[in-house]
Design a protein around this nucleic acid. Sequence first.
DNA 1: ATTACTACTAAACGAGTAC
DNA 2: TGTACTCGTTTAGTAGTAA
Lengths: 245, 245
Amino acid sequence: METHFKIGQRKNRGFEMGENQNWRHIFTLLKLAEMGAHKRTAKISTEFLARKLGISQQSASRRLIELDRKGWIKRTTTPEGCLIKITDLGFAELKKLYSNMRFLMEASYPPSVTLEGVVFTGLGEGSYYVTRDYYRKQFMEKLGFDPYPGTLNLKLVTDYDIKTYSELEAYPAIEVEGFQNENRTFGPVRCYPAIIENKVKGALVSALRSHYNSSVVEIISPVCLRKALDLKDGHKVKVEVLTLP
Amino acid sequence: METHFKIGQRKNRGFEMGENQNWRHIFTLLKLAEMGAHKRTAKISTEFLARKLGISQQSASRRLIELDRKGWIKRTTTPEGCLIKITDLGFAELKKLYSNMRFLMEASYPPSVTLEGVVFTGLGEGSYYVTRDYYRKQFMEKLGFDPYPGTLNLKLVTDYDIKTYSELEAYPAIEVEGFQNENRTFGPVRCYPAIIENKVKGALVSALRSHYNSSVVEIISPVCLRKALDLKDGHKVKVEVLTLP
DNA sequence: ATTACTACTAAACGAGTAC
DNA sequence: TGTACTCGTTTAGTAGTAA
C-alpha cells in the first residue's frame, strides 16, 4: 500500500468553489438530510422545505429542481409532495464538507498557512543537495515530483512571517531521510507541499540543520521557479504552505 | 446534573436560518478557518480570499466587513492585507454546523421524520392514561411539559406514513416507565418530542402494548391540540417527530 | 501594494397564478 | 392541496476607481 504523500494525488481539502453557487445547494442538501433524505426516500413538500430554509415555496421548488439537475437528489413529484432521496453523488458532497470540517475542528493546526518572503541568491548549495540521488528519489516518491535542480531562497522579512514559519515546525511534515556517503553526512529534511504565487506546485523544504537561520526558507518545485514566475532577487513571493491531514 | 431531555431546553439541532443569508458568511468563515484564522491572527488579503471563494476582490472585502460587523471576526486592515482572527462567536457558528453535521453523518437515523395522519376520536382512554400521576410526573420531568389531559389520535393512511412510523421504533426514544397500582398494570411508554402542524410542541407517545395497531399514533401536548389547531375528526395533521441525539 | 467606495449588472428571490 | 411557471423586485456581485 502506498502510504506516502504525493502532491499529484493529493485530495483537495478545502472546498472547491470554482463555480461557487454550490453553497446554497449544499445547505439545501443538508436540510434534506436532516429530514432523513440521505437514508430513505422522504416525502417533503416544497412549502415545508421552504420554511426550514427560510425562503419561499417557489425558491424551494427551484432549488429542488436544480439539485435534481445536478444529480444530487432523485426526486419524484406527487400530488401530496415530493419524494426525495439524496443520491450518492449528493451525499458525497456532504461527506466532503464534513471531512473538511472535521479536519478543521479536530486538528491542532490549520490546513494551510501563507508565507511571504523576498527572493535572494544563496550559496548555490541547494542545487547540489537537491540532486543527491538519495534525496531526489525520496522527493519523487514522497512529493510526487522530480525537483528542478536548485532551490528558491526566500528571506522572511516581517515578524508575522517569521512567527508563522516557526509555528509551522510544530506541524507534521513529510520526512525525507538523511544519509551519508564516503565524504559526508546529509541530514534529514522536512517538506511541506506548497503552492507558490497561487500558481506553481512545489514544496517548502527545511533542513533540520540549516546553514540559514529561521528567517530563511527554501522552496523546490518540478520547474525552475525563477523562470516560471519570472522572479529576480528582491521580488516578493507568496507561498501557501499546506499542512498534512 | 440534569440528564433528562426537556423540550424547552432542547438545543436546536438543525441550523436556525431565520435570517438565512448566513450561509455565505458561514462559508466565508470556513475558508478563513482553512487559512488558520480560527487559531491565530492570519494575514489574508481580500484578493487572496476572493480567489479561494471564487468571487471578486470587492465582494470578498464586503464579506469581511459584514463578518466584522456581525462580530464573527476581528479584523485589522493594514497596507499589506487584513489581519483576521475568527472570534469565539464566529467559531461557535462553525462548531454548531460541525456538530449538526457530525450527528447527521454518524447517527444511523435522521434528526427528524415527518408523519401525516387523520384525526379521529378514540375511546377516550388517552385522557385517563395521561393523567395517571406516575406517568404525568415523568412527562413533566422528561418532556418538560405537563400534558393536556387527553391525546390526539391520528390514523396513518398512506403506506409511506406507516412505513415511516415503523422505522421510528428503531430510533432511541424517551422512555417513560410503567408501573402498577392495586387494580392493574400500566406499561412503559416511548415518547418522541414532536412539532405538530409546524406550530405546537408536543410528543408522540407510543405504548409498547397499544390497543391500536401500528397505523395509529397518539400525540400529547401541553395544550389541547384540537382547540389550539382547531382540529376536527377527518382533518389531516402533520407531525414532525424529532429523534434524540 | 492594499482596501473599499459608488454605480451598475447579474442573479436570486418571491408574488401571483396556472395546472 | 400540491408543483412550478412568468415576471417584477430585491439582493448579491462586479467594474472602475479613490484613498
